[in-house]
């Protein structure tokens, strides 16, 4: 039984490694067989060469460093604000009613449309880019916090009322343990959104960053550089997401006992 399970785990891991490799191989075969002209489908070697070039010149590292720094700031500010907003909206019906329509409407407008206005308010330096990322990170966290807190079974609040549980311990002993999973999944979504929007925002306005590298690649008809950007974006985003999932597992393990105790 246990041997079979180990085998399955190994199989699973090897399949998960093999499938991207298979895609890579298919890409290589397609481009080597010249099914499409090289201007249309860049070969993996060309992408690798461009990658080597960008790494050797330090250009990639510089762009990536800038992007990650922006991500850190924008994500922290945005998801922090989202957490507070979600909590306030969940706990105070008046607050929710005041801001809900604005919140829902703003959420639905792509940040691209706001760029002139954002420039007006925040200038064109780093603050501007961080605000764009923060906007993207804000909504998923706010939404899932709201839902997480709202999704707590009614009975728990009734029990808390019967026992006259004070607000701080209601928050600490009941709300947090019950809502952390939902909130964290929202924060995870925020991280992904922040990363996606960061690159997108850099495509439009920036002097550096991985998005700008891709945009210049497009302007300069260097599709190998664009492809390097696509691959790097995917890999970095994947790593960020995986890292967050590991962190999440850790956090939830730590929270497991109080949650049980409170319930």
């Amino acid at each position: 039984m246990s041997a079979a399970r180990i085998d399955e785990a190994t199989l699973r891991r090897s399949v998960m490694v093999a499938s991207p490799l298979a895609v890579l191989l298919a890409w290589q075969v397609l481009s080597a067989a010249r099914v499409f002209p090289p201007e249309v489908l860049v070969s993996p070697q060309a992408v690798l060469a461009a990658f080597g070039q960008l790494t050797a010149s330090g250009e990639l590292a510089r762009h990536l460093g800038e992007s990650l720094q922006r991500l850190l700031w924008g994500f922290s500010i945005g998801s922090g604000a989202g957490l507070l907003f979600g909590l306030a909206a969940a706990l105070s019906p008046t607050f929710a009613r005041l801001f809900d329509p604005l919140f829902q409407a703003l959420r639905q407008v792509p940040v691209l449309a706001f760029i002139p206005l954002l420039i007006l308010l925040f200038g064109i330096d780093e603050v501007f880019k961080i605000v764009i990322i923060a906007k993207a990170a804000f909504f998923p966290t706010a939404l899932s916090t709201l839902d997480g807190v709202r999704g707590v079974p009614k009975a728990w609040f009734e029990v808390a009322r019967i026992y006259r549980t004070p607000l701080p311990s209601l928050v600490w002993r009941v709300l947090i343990p019950a809502t952390v999973p939902a909130v964290l999944s929202g924060v995870r979504l925020s991280l992904t959104r922040a990363w996606l929007v960061l690159v997108a925002a850099e495509l439009i306005v920036a002097d550096s960053g991985i998005g700008q590298m891709m945009e210049m690649g497009r302007q300069m008809f260097r599709l190998d550089v664009v492809m390097v950007g696509v691959v790097v974006c995917g890999v970095i985003g994947f790593a960020l997401d995986r890292g967050f999932v590991l962190l999440q597992a850790r956090l939830l393990r730590w929270r497991a006992q109080p949650a049980g105790a409170a319930a």
């Binding site: 992904t192 996606l196 929007v197 690159v199 974006c233 890999v235 995986r242």
Partner: peptide
């Protein structure tokens, strides 16, 4: 699940705007 999970999670981290040239 095994085959698609790594592809899905990698691809969804690429911004749609990044795909535009391709």
């Amino acid at each position: 699940d095994w085959v698609l999970t790594p592809l899905y999670h990698g691809l969804r981290q690429v911004p749609l705007l990044g795909w535009l040239p391709l």
